[in-house]
Design a protein around this nucleic acid. Structure first.
Lengths: 155, 155
DNA sequence: CCTATTTTTGCAATTGAGTTGCATTTATGG
DNA sequence: CCATAAATGCAACTCAATTGCAAAAATAGG
């Protein structure tokens, strides 16, 4: 009953795509799997095991590839920076994200039940609905009393 | 009962801010007012009257300024390009956008009635909800029968 | 195990939206 | 008309992301 580590999970998922199993792919995917929120390219880079020495461009390409394979999900934030999260965290149906207007962090929210019907102009075809809640995350918000000692802003 | 032109409307709105009434501001705002959809910086630039000769940077700055003044609204698209539309088109309440996955065009949709309640994690504060419908716009969609003769894609 | 073949990587250079510093010009108040 | 604060124009810059191409893996087949 050994728990599967993110690394194992990553390796497994990548094998299933039929493409080559490479170190950068495994490492990047396992970084995504370990995070509960969507990560920027830089965040992924800095969370790679020390000395992994994976090229910047390779990270971009792996991230892109993971998205194509459906193993990751790509989110455009207000700061024009892509963020990625592992598809394991994905919900189907209408997708909801939270975006912090202070630090820019993005995370997936529970799927919404009441999918609001939107009226599209004639000739328009709907493919997906995305709901983004903007606000302030716990780290950036006003600390009333509790004083959690971190609050690292990213801007 | 002479109809107010976009130019007049633009001039009026800008006067009301109390700031200087300048040619670039009037021209840019009137371009936004004339468009029913959100425009990128480049679209604004190319729609300025021939020979207006307004600097690229000035357009950025005017667009930014209009947003600060509440005269325009800034939207981040999947293609990491800002789009702006005149605030006259704005609705209050939960905001809905349509984004074409083909040409990237963004436009405002009628406000949604059923604001879906989303459950945020503890410590998170909600400021705004934005609903984005992704799909294919009339110009990019399959032309079944009608054959409208334009369909200019932008990618 | 070794080699052929195809993918991936790494590196360097490039793109393109958006920004900044600073000198010059312009709108407006007196 | 003049002073002056505010905008503009210009050039250079930032920074995420992309591209071309040669070098380096990863699998398939022997």
């Amino acid at each position: 009953m050994s728990k599967t580590t993110p690394l194992d999970a990553a390796e497994q998922s990548i094998r299933l795509t039929g493409a080559k199993l490479t170190r950068p792919r495994v490492l990047v995917l396992s970084v995504l799997l370990k995070s509960e929120r969507a990560l920027t390219h830089h965040e992924v880079e800095s969370r790679l095991p020390a000395g992994s020495d994976v090229n910047r461009v390779t990270i971009y390409r792996v991230l892109e590839w993971l998205t194509e394979q459906g193993l990751a999900h790509k989110i455009a934030g207000e700061d024009r920076v892509w963020r990625f999260n592992a598809a394991a965290h994905q919900h189907t149906g209408p997708h909801a994200h939270f975006e912090c207007s202070d630090c820019g962090q993005v995370l997936c929210l529970e799927p919404v039940q009441a999918k609001p019907a939107v009226r599209l102009p004639a000739g328009f075809r709907q493919q997906a609905v995305e709901l983004t809640v903007k606000g302030v995350c716990a780290d950036c918000g006003p600390v009333h009393g509790k004083s959690r000692g971190h609050g690292r802003h990213q801007h």
